[in-house]
Amino acid sequence: MKFSVGIAMSPLEQLVPLAQTAEECGFANIALPDSLFFMETAAADYPYTPDGSRMWNAETPWVDPLIAAAAMGAATSTIGFYTNVLKLGSRNPLLLARQVGSVANLTQGRFGFGVGIGWAPEEFEWCGVPYAKRGARVDEMIEVIKLVLGGGMVEYHGKFYDFDRLQMSPAPSSPVPFYVGGHTEVALKRAARVGDGWTSAMMKFKDLAATKLRLDELRAEYGRENEPFEIQAVCIDRFGKDGYAELAEAGITDTIVVPWLFDGVAFDGPLEAKQDSLRKFAAENIG
Rank of each mutant, 00 (worst) to 15 (best):
M1F: 04
F3T: 00
A8G: 11
A8M: 11
Q14L: 02
V16R: 05
P17M: 03
T21D: 08
A22D: 12
E24L: 11
C25K: 01
F27A: 12
A28T: 10
A31G: 10
A31C: 14
L36F: 14
F37E: 01
F37N: 00
A43E: 15
A43K: 13
Y48H: 15
Y48G: 09
T49W: 03
P50T: 11
M55F: 14
T60Y: 06
T60W: 07
P61T: 13
D64P: 13
P65L: 14
I67P: 04
I67R: 06
A68Y: 06
A68H: 09
A68I: 08
A69T: 12
A71T: 14
A74C: 05
T76F: 04
S77K: 15
T78P: 01
T78W: 03
I79H: 05
G80D: 07
Y82W: 13
N84E: 13
K87D: 06
L88A: 11
L88M: 14
G89M: 09
N92D: 12
V100A: 06
G101E: 09
G101W: 12
S102N: 13
N105Y: 10
L106A: 14
T107E: 06
Q108V: 04
R110G: 12
F113L: 15
V115K: 03
I117P: 04
G118W: 07
G118E: 07
W119P: 05
W126M: 12
G128M: 02
G128K: 05
V129E: 11
V129N: 09
Y131W: 15
Y131K: 07
A136N: 06
I142M: 13
V144N: 00
V148K: 07
G151V: 01
Y156V: 09
G158A: 09
K159H: 13
L166N: 04
P170E: 10
A171I: 08
P172Q: 00
P177H: 12
G182H: 09
T184D: 05
E185R: 09
V186E: 09
A187E: 06
R190C: 06
R190D: 02
A192R: 03
R193M: 09
V194T: 12
W198N: 07
T199D: 01
M202T: 12
D207W: 02
A209G: 07
R214C: 03
E217L: 09
L218V: 02
L218I: 04
L218A: 05
A220C: 04
R224K: 08
E230V: 01
I236S: 10
G243A: 04
G243M: 03
E246Y: 00
E246W: 00
A248G: 10
W260V: 03
W260K: 02
G264K: 08
V265C: 01
V265N: 02
A266Y: 04
F267W: 11
P270N: 05
L271Q: 10
E272W: 01
A273Y: 00
S277Q: 02
S277T: 02
F281P: 00
E284T: 02
